[in-house]
Every structure is written in structure tokens, then in C-alpha cells.
């Protein structure tokens, strides 16, 4: 009885999670000027309309550029940090790790406000750089977490063996350590890309009228109209996300990719 009830509730929750996304995907093909589900008729005109929206296309490109740059920078800073911690235990190591993870604990909106104020005070007027810094800041913890977990799982004897065979520090790093944790690095990279690409809260504060990442563009758009064109954008983004999930699954396995542990 109880098991049955819990089981049914579990399925309802699955429906609750997926339902809205299904409605959006279905609604993006509707012929009505509002999102209807099941869709009334079938048309691709909302997708077509999207092609003529230069602002959405530009925002999409900005988001991609931002996500790629952010992945590279966050990886460089984050991987160096966790490898440093892994190789040379520092006194107060736990505290430093907590410091590295802090952007994850601090409210994103506060980080956005703080950077906004900071840029204002130092008179910085470069929205793209400003956005990039914000994105790097909030994605470094993901790198530390995923790559850190990979390093924890690394057999220390591997590096010791390389050392005993005469390899120097740099050679060990590039020939042994980094290749051994390559899957974690790949997973972290995808993770950072998604996080940056989807980031809205920080971006809302830092975006300018000419440099508007896609989430901010959608935010400002749906504040004034809820038409099926956004459903079309959303559908494309859902497909994009599932592509990335599949990639993540292939690279590392989902449950491991989502696993925690610094």
C-alpha cells in the first residue's frame, strides 16, 4: 500500500518535472498567437520569426563566446589551484578550499550587485569583460569540485611511480596527472560551459544594452510578451541542453559528473 502510494507519487513528481518542458516544446509549434497545449495546428513560423530577430541571434553569439572564454579561464585558474593543493599540502588547506568554493555559497544576486558596484567605482566600462569576470568567478567552484574529486580518486602511486622513473615535476604533471584526470577536466569544462551559458542572475546586473547574453535577452523579452517565439527559443535551448547531457553522460557518466566532494 505505502510502497504503491510512494511509487505513484514518484511518477507524479517525474511528470511535474517534465510536464512544463513538454508543454513548451509542443506549444512552440502552435498556430495560435499564444502558447497552446496541445498545439493548435502545426507551424514553424515561430522558428522562422526567430531567424529574423537579429537581437536574439546576436545574444546567442555573445552567450557562446562568453561561455567558451569563461570555460578556458575558469579551467586555467581552477585546475592550477586544485593541482597546487593536491601536490603541495598547504597549512590551512581546508580554509583555502572553502575560500575557493565560496562563490557557490554566496548568493549569486549579491555577487552580481557587488560586481556592479565595483565596476561603477573603478569606472570600468567594458560590459563583455565585466560579464566574463562575473562568470569566471561563479564557475571556478565547479571546476574545483569536479577536478578536485578526480584528483582524490587518483592513485598517488601513479605520480610516485613516474617520479621513481626519473620524471620531473612538469613531466609528471603533463604526462601523468593531467591525462589521468582528463575525464574530470572534460566534465568540468562542459559544466562550466552550461553554467555560464545559462547564467542569468549575475548577467542581469552586468549586461549592457549592446552586450546582452541570451538569458538576459529572454528575461527582458518575456517581461513584456509571452508569445510562442520564446517557446521556440526555449525548445532550441532544451535540445542544446540534452545534447550536452548526452555528452556529459558519455564523458563521465551522469551520476559521477554530478557527484560532489572537493
Amino acid at each position: 500500500m505505502l510502497d504503491k502510494a510512494l511509487d505513484i507519487l514518484g511518477w507524479l513528481v517525474v511528470l511535474f518535472i517534465l510536464g512544463p518542458l513538454i508543454v513548451i516544446i509542443g506549444g512552440s509549434f502552435t498556430e495560435t498567437p499564444y502558447v497552446a497545449f496541445p498545439p493548435a495546428g502545426f507551424t514553424l513560423r515561430w522558428y522562422e520569426q526567430l531567424l529574423h530577430r537579429g537581437d536574439f541571434l546576436q545574444s546567442f553569439l555573445i552567450s557562446i563566446v562568453l561561455a567558451v572564454l569563461c570555460s578556458l579561464c575558469a579551467m586555467a585558474l581552477g585546475v592550477a589551484a586544485v593541482i597546487g593543493l593536491h601536490r603541495h599540502g598547504v597549512t590551512g588547506q581546508r580554509l583555502f578550499r572553502a575560500f575557493l568554493m565560496s562563490p557557490l555559497v554566496l548568493p549569486t544576486i549579491v555577487t552580481g550587485v557587488a560586481l556592479l558596484q565595483f565596476y561603477y567605482l573603478i569606472d570600468m566600462d567594458a560590459p563583455l569583460t565585466g560579464l566574463l569576470i562575473g562568470h569566471i568567478l561563479i564557475t571556478i567552484p565547479y571546476v574545483c569540485r569536479t577536478v578536485g574529486a578526480g584528483l582524490v580518486g587518483l592513485d598517488p602511486a601513479l605520480e610516485e611511480a613516474a617520479g621513481s622513473l626519473g620524471a620531473g615535476g612538469l613531466r609528471i604533471l603533463f604526462r601523468v596527472t593531467l591525462p589521468a584526470i582528463a575525464p574530470s577536466i572534460m566534465a568540468a569544462m562542459i559544466f562550466v560551459f552550461i553554467t555560464s551559458f545559462d547564467q542569468a542572475t549575475v548577467s542581469i546586473f552586468l549586461a549592457g544594452p549592446d552586450v546582452m547574453p541570451l538569458p538576459v535577452r529572454i528575461y527582458t523579452y518575456i517581461d513584456f510578451a509571452v508569445d510562442p517565439m520564446v517557446a521556440a527559443v526555449s525548445t532550441l535551448l532544451i535540445i542544446f541542453a540534452f545534447g550536452l547531457i548526452a555528452l556529459l553522460q558519455k564523458v563521465l557518466g551522469l551520476d559521477r559528473a554530478m557527484g560532489t566532494g572537493v
Binding site: 517534465l18 512544463p20 518542458l21 508543454v23 545559462d198 541570451l214 529572454i218 527559443v233 554530478m258
Partner: peptide, 13 residues
């Protein structure tokens, strides 16, 4: 999957 789908998309839904 929701974690990987844009927050705006989910809110819009």
C-alpha cells in the same frame, strides 16, 4: 535535466 536547462526556459514554462 532541469539543472542543465536554462532557468529562463523553466520560468517561462
Amino acid at each position: 535535466s532541469p539543472l542543465l536547462i536554462n532557468l529562463l526556459v523553466r520560468t517561462y514554462a
